[in-house]
Design a protein around this nucleic acid. Structure first.
Length: 605
DNA sequence: TTAGGGTTAG
């Protein structure tokens, strides 16, 4: 057999009768021949045969062949790292490349501890790491969330002068992001002379994983303006997620446009993110139509749709989608059931809620978790079944958490049950709840009952614990900018015109028979002061601002951090008639669509 | 002679 034909031959598994004619080939050619054989292997069995043949030929045990054996083998893909390791151990004097190969292979195999152990061995044996060593190590630390080790190894790479290697920097951003050390990730990012698409993706993902959505969008904006923008599906999905959390519909729509222009054939992940964005930004119809047009749906798509419908109070429709999911043969999980139960709770579907709660375990073998119990307490509480809800909590086989007790406390507030509110609050305080809202609710209930000494006691307790009432705020998007209003806000640059608008609205509201519901202003102050307080609620400021700055008929969408007060609810209903606007408000629990003087929640919330 | 970074939905 001629030398050239040996080199060209890649199908090792009809092996030649004789080994390559070593007298005819120089060492390099032999090595390349070995490599091409190894690369042609498709599984471990073929690989072992190739390995044995090369050893038989007698020119395997130089370090080049051995390391390439590991490198070319995809041994980690075949779950054969023990075999790779046995090869490595036969190398007399492994160098940087051999160690790098092992570290990379272990990282690929998701065996991060072993990767770090090889790095330690490398240092112990005095083998100097190079710039190829570090990205793999940082990836291992990222997965392990090994903050301390990561920082220590960062120190090594710095000393060796790899601080400006773009691959090292990108993996550092990823590592610090995954370890929650966002300021370190940001520092590495800022110091980079040349940022690659991977650098931007890494920092955007880091902000997203910590829920720092505004920063996420800001960095994305900078990426575009610095001309380093390549529309990548994954980045755009992260941006969509940020829009969802910030209720930034206009930007979400732009992102949808960018996806349609740049990515052909949106996959199920992108479509699910789009549905989630539209639904959580208040456009339920748009979300539904995308959902029904999907060619392929998975459990996640169903979850998004079911919990979206739940937030909008469309309980029956949510249950229809849930049945559709079962018919399609998709097995529900615990998160789907949180959506289903909350749909029942928001829509007042008591019997259906209990039925689903039972089916969850009996038909799908899902043991109810504390969130599911929470939904059931909410379901009963909203319907005014306060005593039943308390009994239900007392019979729970698992320990109720603060969310469960808080659900009960909220229900007590709505249905004015001070006695059980005290029980719920006692449990919350025992659970060392640091949530100022719990104290505020109880104190407000005492105020409503005109029990002023108790009010003072609670307020003092709050002060002693250093808890401050969380100020209510509302977000409204006007001209692709999110404007934030805090209760009693006077900081907005257009503050004067906003308060003038509030004044004008007030006159029109009076014609419609509006009287401020001062009963929820729970301060020991006179009626006029109470009415004054109500006027400054952040939702009203946001509505006034939007009425000034958007044209007639434009829908107004608001997102707020707290639950709406009764006064804002009835106020907004009237505004929707007077100004002929559809107003959508997302509070911490659900959506309210105000139109023609009514709200989609039918005053059940 | 060989090898490297980021990456998405509830």
């Amino acid at each position: 057999m001629a030398g050239t034909s040996v080199l060209q031959r890649t199908n090792f598994f009809s092996p030649p009768a004789d080994p390559p004619q070593s007298s005819d080939l120089n060492l390099r050619l032999k090595e390349q021949h070995c490599l091409s054989l190894l690369k042609s292997c498709n599984n471990l069995e073929e690989f072992k045969q190739a390995h044995a043949q090369i050893v038989k030929w007698g020119f395997f045990w130089n370090s080049f062949s051995a390391s390439n054996l590991v490198a070319a083998s995809a041994l980690s893909d075949w779950g054969s790292m023990d075999y790779a390791c046995s090869i490595f151990r036969q190398i007399d004097d492994p160098g940087t490349f051999e160690f790098n190969t092992m570290i990379r292979a272990y990282v690929k195999d998701m065996n991060f501890g072993e990767a770090l152990a090889f790095y330690c061995e490398m240092l112990e044996r005095g083998v100097e790491p190079d710039n190829f060593t570090y990205p793999a190590l940082f990836k291992a630390c990222a997965w392990l969330k090994a903050k301390e080790e990561g920082m220590q190894i960062h120190g090594h790479s710095f000393k060796l002068g790899f601080e400006t290697d773009v691959y090292v920097q990108n993996s550092l951003i990823n590592m610090y992001g995954k370890c929650g050390q966002i300021e370190h990730a940001g520092a590495v990012f800022e110091q980079m002379d040349e940022k690659s698409v991977a650098s931007w993706s890494a920092i955007i993902a880091a902000y997203a994983s910590l829920g720092m959505w505004s920063e996420c969008l800001m960095v994305f904006g900078n990426m575009s303006s610095e001309g380093c923008w390549r529309p990548e599906e994954s980045t755009l999905v992260t941006v969509l997620s940020a829009c969802t959390h910030l209720s930034a519909l206009d930007l979400g729509k732009c992102t949808h446009g960018a996806l349609l222009r740049n990515i052909s054939g949106l996959n199920v992940i992108v479509q699910t993110s789009l549905i989630d964005m539209y639904v959580k930004c208040g456009c339920l119809e748009k979300g539904l139509s995308l959902f029904h047009r999907m060619a392929e749906r998975n459990r996640m798509s169903y979850t998004v749709m079911i919990s979206g419908l739940a937030m909008h109070g469309h309980g029956e429709e949510a249950l229809r989608i849930y049945s559709m999911m079962l018919e399609e043969g998709i097995e529900p999980d615990d998160v789907v059931y949180v959506g289903v139960l909350s749909a029942c709770s928001h829509a007042g579907l008591i019997d259906e809620g209990f039925e689903c709660f039972d089916r969850m375990k009996s038909e799908h073998g899902i043991e109810p978790a504390v969130q599911h119990y929470g939904c059931m307490v909410d379901l009963m509480g909203k319907a005014g079944m306060i005593n039943e809800a308390l009994e239900f909590i007392n019979s729970m086989p698992i320990e109720p958490n603060d969310v469960v007790w808080r659900s009960l406390l909220s229900a007590c507030r709505v249905h004015c049950n001070l006695e059980i509110a005290e029980i719920a609050a006692k449990h919350l305080f025992q659970l060392s709840s640091q949530n100022p809202g719990d104290y505020v609710i109880l104190s407000n209930m005492y105020a409503q009952a005109e029990k002023w000494p108790e009010v003072a006691k609670i307020r003092m307790e709050m002060a002693r614990k250093g808890l401050n009432q969380v100020p209510g705020f509302s977000l409204v998007e006007v001209g692709r900018r999110i404007h934030k209003f805090v209760s009693q806000d006077t900081s907005h640059p257009l503050c004067k015109s906003i308060y003038e608008m509030i004044h004008q609205m007030e006159w029109q509201l009076k014609f419609e028979g509006y009287t401020p519901e001062t009963s929820q202003v729970l301060l020991d102050v006179d009626e006029e002061e109470k009415a004054q307080r109500l006027k400054g609620h952040s939702q009203k400021l946001a509505i006034a601002f939007a009425l000034i700055h958007t044209s007639q008929g434009t829908p107004i969408r608001i997102a707020r951090n707290l639950r709406m007060c009764n006064d804002c609810h009835s106020y907004t209903k009237l505004i929707s008639i007077i100004y002929e606007r559809e107003i959508t408000v997302r509070d911490r629990n659900r959506f309210h669509h105000f139109k023609d003087g009514t709200c989609s929640c039918r005053d059940y919330w």
